[in-house]
Design a protein around this nucleic acid. Sequence first.
DNA 1: GATACTATTTTGATTCATCAAAGTAATCAT
DNA 2: ATGATTACTTTGATGAATCAAAATAGTATC
Lengths: 229, 229
Amino acid sequence: MSTFDKPTNQNVPTPTVENYLKQILMVTLEENGSRVAMGKVATELAVTPGTATSMVKNMERDGWLKYYPRQGVSLTRKGRKVAMNMLRRHRLLETFLVETLGFDWSEIHIEAEELEHAISEKVLEKLDEFLGRPRYDPHGHPIPSKRGTIQRPSSQTLQNCDTGVTVRVESILDQESDFLKFAREKELLPGKAVSVIRSEKLADVITLKIEGNEPFSMGFRSAEKILVV
Amino acid sequence: MSTFDKPTNQNVPTPTVENYLKQILMVTLEENGSRVAMGKVATELAVTPGTATSMVKNMERDGWLKYYPRQGVSLTRKGRKVAMNMLRRHRLLETFLVETLGFDWSEIHIEAEELEHAISEKVLEKLDEFLGRPRYDPHGHPIPSKRGTIQRPSSQTLQNCDTGVTVRVESILDQESDFLKFAREKELLPGKAVSVIRSEKLADVITLKIEGNEPFSMGFRSAEKILVV
DNA sequence: GATACTATTTTGATTCATCAAAGTAATCAT
DNA sequence: ATGATTACTTTGATGAATCAAAATAGTATC
């Protein structure tokens, strides 16, 4: 053994590493803190906390992220680049599944989750071209560019809209199939204009109206998942 | 420990198992012997012989195939079903890559190899529908049906065609990018009519002519890879 | 049939990703 | 601040897939 501690240098991420990176990026984008707590990592990836810790250590060894024990992780430039690319893959695939194959937008998340690891850069490029280089996926999320930049989404949610105002839905922050079905039923879709009929902070409920539909209500917990401008 | 030796029951194949199954099926279809030698398994999957042996033992444990030590393996009904499905995935994906995304047929094999493990039954079904339920892939290979049946391909190759006859190309048995490029250049494609100008057994060479092109020659080794009717 | 060569199997080790359970640090509540 | 709760880390083990190298069986050659 020399001074060097094994050159186990991984410059090519395994699918698992790709998943960790993408998930960490997504949390980073949602919350605005640059460190993601280990607990969050573990639940997002549906593994035990111990697994998350040990994975993250190896990922630090390979230069994907910085690990601050008992505080959390943050991506390095190298890690962020890969993570952005995963997000791009994911969102382009979701677009393809809805636009081309006619899937319902509530059922595509898991499918894309699998495919994003298998699709090569070459196929991705052709797919992008075929789809006409879309800039938003079916949920309204911006698709990162090839160079790894992403449009900052609105930070306003339906939750903090006051009574009387009218806003436009930008995107839906939930991947849950049931919630997406509900949103579709109510026509609470990206691009739609929504009037806030009543917002009751105390009762934790908001009542909405969309052109041509019956008014309906939803709790703040749900309203928080709808980004608007 | 009871009498039972671990219920490590795998009824869901891992991607690796899927690969072994598909590859074994393909060899079974090409040669007409029902046992595939371990050496063949190892080279097809590009692993060391030892690895092949140990994988195959686990696969027998899980009921995917029968293993006859020092003789070879043959698929069980269960294994064949999965293998057929893999072949279906592979060939549908190749069709998609060529027909929809505009790839050259010489560069799609590796791409499909990756995607076939990631695509779900649901997406496969939609894709099949989108493509208009094709029955042949771009190389002319029959696509197995959803129920796992496949059309027996012609067993005649260009190699054993006599001077003077004219035949129709059915499919190309090689996945090698360079060979496929050559075939495309000469328009030696599925569906095309080919006249055998001269077949010289001793010199091991065959001279061909395709409507509207210059005649050209190829060795028997290559001619063997072209199925005709 | 003894020897040589080839095909296959065995053995022992390794890497990746994971879990359960035990240990430790940090934070929260009274 | 002391004790309880929550968050995180460590430890030891496991299964899947692999390799290299040694052992063994089978076949071919003279």
